[in-house]
């Protein structure tokens, strides 16, 4: 069920869209890594990592992910979807 290979070079806009789709795929992986990062924080002896510090890390990261998602999803309108869900160039 292989589709016939598409053109090697794409129009600028389509190319941009595909890179945005790549970014959309990468974003949750990046987010997952960032969310797990605090687990590695050890703190100094006698001065453990404070909850408020973790909050000051997690909430901005959260906001950052949401904003990035805004920027990415603006380029991923479904009416310009050419069905290239797989095998993107």
């Amino acid at each position: 069920m292989r589709e016939t290979p598409g053109p090697v070079f794409l129009e600028r806009r389509t190319y941009r869209r595909r890179r945005m789709a790549d970014a959309a795929r990468m974003l949750p992986i990046l987010g997952g890594a960032l969310f797990l990062l605090p687990l590695l924080w050890e703190g100094k002896p006698g001065e453990p990592v404070r909850t408020s510090m973790v909050m000051f890390y997690l909430f901005p990261v959260w906001l950052l992910l949401a904003v990035t998602s805004v920027l990415i999803s603006r380029h991923l309108r479904s009416d310009t979807d050419n069905g290239g869900g797989h095998g993107d160039h």
Partner: peptide
Amino acid sequence: PTLVMIGWWW
């Protein structure tokens, strides 16, 4: 759920 939502493309 946040990760699932921002990974909606998957």
